[in-house]
Amino acid sequence: MIRYLLKRLFWMIPMLIGISLISFFIMHLAPGDITTTEAGFNPKASEESRQKLRELYHLDEPVIVQYGLWLERMGKLDFGASFASHQRPVFWETKDDQGNVTKGLIQEALPITLLINVLSLGLIIAIALPLGVVSSLTQNQLPDRAITLFVFIGFAIPGFWLALLLMYWTGVVHDWLPISGLHSLHYDQLGFFGKIGDSLKHLALPVFISGLSGLAGISLFVRNGMLEVLHQDYITTARAKGLGENTVVYRHALRNALLPLITLLGLAIPGLIGGSVIAESIFAIPGMGKLFYDAVLMRDFPVIMGILTIGSALTLLGNLLADLAYAWADPRVRRGVMS
């Protein structure tokens, strides 16, 4: 088991280097760099000053040399500083001589995106599981049809459109929820519970919107998994033994039907750090999606690479975790891993 784990972890290193190399080259395939986006078209900005900036950022070197420099820094776990946002550190905070702390870009965006995605994943599971089970138990009857229709509408509806509608309805027509942002202007004057309430109010719509489209996938997944299991021989056996319907459905069928869900959730881990550009823009949430999108538009190479590296590392880790969780949950797989 330990050997298997070490082997998998070791193989992640060449994989990561390969991924970063390909990302780095693709990133440089796009024309332009930070000097074309930042003040690139301002007549007051001279070409000499831009050339100076290119030299400072080593953008005048061949791409392979730039990659070498980047890799060298990464070897020291230094993600570098952003070109576009005033030399802010890409990943984690730095401290200068006077003790002033500058927060990292990813450090600030990641918790927000993680919070929203974890909440919405929780929401998805909490709703999709019962929906899927009910669906499978009433296959092709009215509840099943209604649920399927509902989740498909949720899947098909454009998120930004529904978001704007809900913002208008809950924020403008009625004064129920804030429209955008993460905190109210008077947040600092609130007490502890007031702060939590304020945050929850701000998070309600973004979490709902980002969860809605995931609902369809998971609930259909559960429904189909359940249907497959319910037709297995051991369920017939369980029923023949005279077990109660609840025991059959929830202890024997559901637990087996949920196994593939573990893989699915493992694969969802890297998705947790990727925010949605559109949702984040509409709700004015400073998360990872907006950070990445802006970085691409500005050709802010250190930020792009930082996010890609962390994303690919998490993807690989997520795969590993999913495999391990699967082995833990399913004895058949476990035997394969152990041997």
């Binding site: 704007l164 913002m167 208008y168 924020g171 403008v172 004064d175 804030p178 429209i179 955008s180 942002g181 202007l185 984040e280 823009s281 509409i282 709700f283 004015a284 400073p286 907006k290």
Partner: peptide, 20 residues
């Protein structure tokens, strides 16, 4: 003077309508 960062114009407009 408070400057809020709201990237989306439509959201800004809703905030304006809602008096925020």
């Amino acid at each position: 003077l408070v400057t809020r960062f709201i990237p989306d114009e439509a959201s800004q407009f809703l905030e304006l309508m809602a008096n925020n």
